[in-house]
Amino acid sequence: MNNKAIILNNRPSGMPTASDFKLITEPIPQIGHGEILLKTVYVSVDPYLRGKMSGTKTPRFELGAPLSSKIIAEVMESKNENFSVGEHVSHYLDWKEYLVSNGEGLVKVEQTDAPLSAYLGVLGITGLSAYFALLDIGKPKAGETLVVSGAAGAVGSIAGQIGKLMGCRVIGTAGTDEKVELLKTKFGFDEAINYKTTPDMKAAIAKACPNGVDIYFDNVGGPVSDAVIAHMNNYGRIPVCGSISNYNDTVEPMSPSLLPLVVYKFLTIQGFLIADYAPRFLKGTARLSSWLKEGKITYSETILEGFDRLPEAFIGLFEGRNEGKMIVKI
């Protein structure tokens, strides 16, 4: 039986296409002493992979080599005393159906608090990104106004819900009327705006945020962010999680200068790497898990089935085809 793998075939220019990926087959590897054979179960598909494909984000993906992301896998064979057949583990692993690992970095996961797929989303890096960026950088206080862009996505939907738990009034932006409705019904946002059908985003933000914006959780960058930042209150805080609207740009984007606003409104704009919070992951996951079990937060997943659909799932992120976390089930 052959093992499937997906390698980087071309460095994308603009929107990624199916030809940037290549499906190959190779023998299923044999394990040695201290190693385990893993079978991929779920693969996390995330926008940040675009920068690693083009080489603008390090470490970059190399041409002819497999892509990688956060994966949940099942132990199929073990010659490592720390892992048993049938256990599930999670780590950053190559896009292959079967993999060999020495166990380093693997974290065991169990379907006790939530389904396995949730450990790639709300109980994984996705949920932790929303949790730490909002609480540590956004510093929400009861009564403040929080705006979340890309709010129907994996991180944004969690960030908005945490904002509500902190007592904030929460407004989200999304790209379809269906997602706007989802934000207000399933995720409990106070208001939501379809940025694709709104001719004047600055006016829409002003109407939705009559008292200004205290915190802006930015997942998209571009014109949406320009509109929100124009309405920031003094001492506003802006955690920058992503800039998906610009990831496929082939020319330098033109945008109004923000520096006068930063100076005169005393704004804090801060990006982050989730790896910096690694020592606090267990505490963050425990709190997210508690909120999930208590019904205080919920989540959405878009799950495509089949290893061959990994490129389709990735491209779908930039076409807005995901509701919540995009995952491929193998």
Score class of each variant (00 low, 15 high):
residue 295 G to C: 00
residue 195 Y to D: 12
residue 298 T to N: 15
residue 316 G to I: 05
residue 88 H to Q: 13
residue 21 F to H: 05
residue 178 E to N: 12
residue 304 L to I: 03
residue 264 Y to S: 15
residue 48 Y to Q: 13
residue 61 F to R: 04
residue 24 I to P: 06
residue 238 I to V: 09
residue 151 A to H: 04
residue 282 L to D: 14
residue 220 V to M: 11
residue 226 D to V: 15
residue 221 G to M: 02
residue 204 A to G: 09
residue 233 N to L: 08
residue 192 A to L: 03
residue 279 P to I: 03
residue 304 L to M: 14
residue 174 A to G: 06
residue 270 Q to F: 00
residue 12 P to A: 09
residue 133 A to Q: 05
residue 86 G to H: 08
residue 170 V to Q: 14
residue 13 S to P: 01
residue 119 Y to R: 09
residue 65 A to R: 13
residue 211 N to V: 00
residue 281 F to V: 06
residue 63 L to E: 03
residue 58 T to E: 13
residue 45 V to K: 11
residue 181 E to N: 10
residue 163 G to R: 07
residue 35 E to S: 10
residue 195 Y to T: 10
residue 117 S to Y: 09
residue 276 D to R: 07
residue 280 R to K: 15
residue 311 P to H: 06
residue 58 T to W: 00
residue 182 L to Q: 08
residue 36 I to G: 08
residue 29 P to Y: 05
residue 203 A to V: 04
residue 329 K to W: 01
residue 137 I to A: 05
residue 92 Y to K: 13
residue 91 H to Y: 11
residue 318 F to V: 08
residue 101 S to T: 04
residue 241 C to P: 02
residue 286 A to G: 07
residue 107 V to H: 05
residue 301 E to W: 00
residue 49 L to S: 14
residue 203 A to Q: 12
residue 157 S to R: 11
residue 36 I to L: 13
residue 312 E to G: 03
residue 113 D to S: 13
residue 84 S to I: 05
residue 256 P to Y: 07
residue 128 L to K: 11
residue 176 T to V: 03
residue 144 E to A: 14
residue 325 K to A: 11
residue 230 A to D: 14
residue 79 K to D: 13
residue 62 E to H: 04
residue 35 E to Q: 15
residue 123 L to V: 04
residue 251 V to C: 10
residue 300 S to R: 05
residue 145 T to M: 10
residue 118 A to C: 11
residue 121 G to L: 08
residue 307 F to T: 12
residue 224 V to N: 14
residue 185 T to F: 00
residue 74 E to W: 01
residue 56 T to M: 12
residue 203 A to H: 02
residue 198 T to A: 06
residue 157 S to H: 04
residue 17 T to D: 08
residue 96 K to L: 09
residue 79 K to A: 11
residue 209 C to D: 06
residue 21 F to T: 09
residue 205 I to H: 02
residue 298 T to M: 02
residue 266 F to P: 02
residue 48 Y to T: 10
residue 146 L to M: 08
residue 183 L to C: 04
residue 319 E to C: 07
residue 66 P to Y: 00
residue 197 T to F: 01
residue 51 G to A: 07
residue 265 K to P: 04
residue 286 A to R: 12
residue 170 V to R: 06
residue 86 G to Y: 05
residue 142 A to K: 15
residue 64 G to L: 02
residue 219 N to I: 01
residue 262 V to H: 04
residue 116 L to H: 09
residue 115 P to E: 15
residue 324 G to W: 02
residue 127 G to V: 02
residue 94 D to N: 15
residue 286 A to T: 08
residue 307 F to E: 09
residue 103 G to Q: 13
residue 244 I to E: 12
residue 262 V to L: 12
residue 205 I to C: 10
residue 204 A to Q: 02
residue 253 P to D: 15
residue 180 V to D: 03
residue 120 L to M: 06
residue 238 I to C: 06
residue 323 E to A: 12
residue 22 K to S: 12
residue 6 I to F: 02
residue 113 D to R: 10
residue 21 F to L: 13
residue 35 E to K: 12
residue 8 L to G: 03
residue 294 E to N: 14
residue 225 S to A: 14
residue 278 A to G: 09
residue 30 Q to P: 00
residue 85 V to K: 15
residue 264 Y to T: 15
residue 6 I to W: 01
residue 299 Y to L: 07
residue 85 V to P: 03
residue 131 Y to T: 07
residue 2 N to G: 07
residue 173 T to D: 08
residue 187 F to R: 07
residue 295 G to M: 05
residue 304 L to K: 09
residue 96 K to Y: 01
residue 300 S to I: 03
residue 294 E to Y: 00
residue 305 E to L: 03
residue 90 S to K: 13
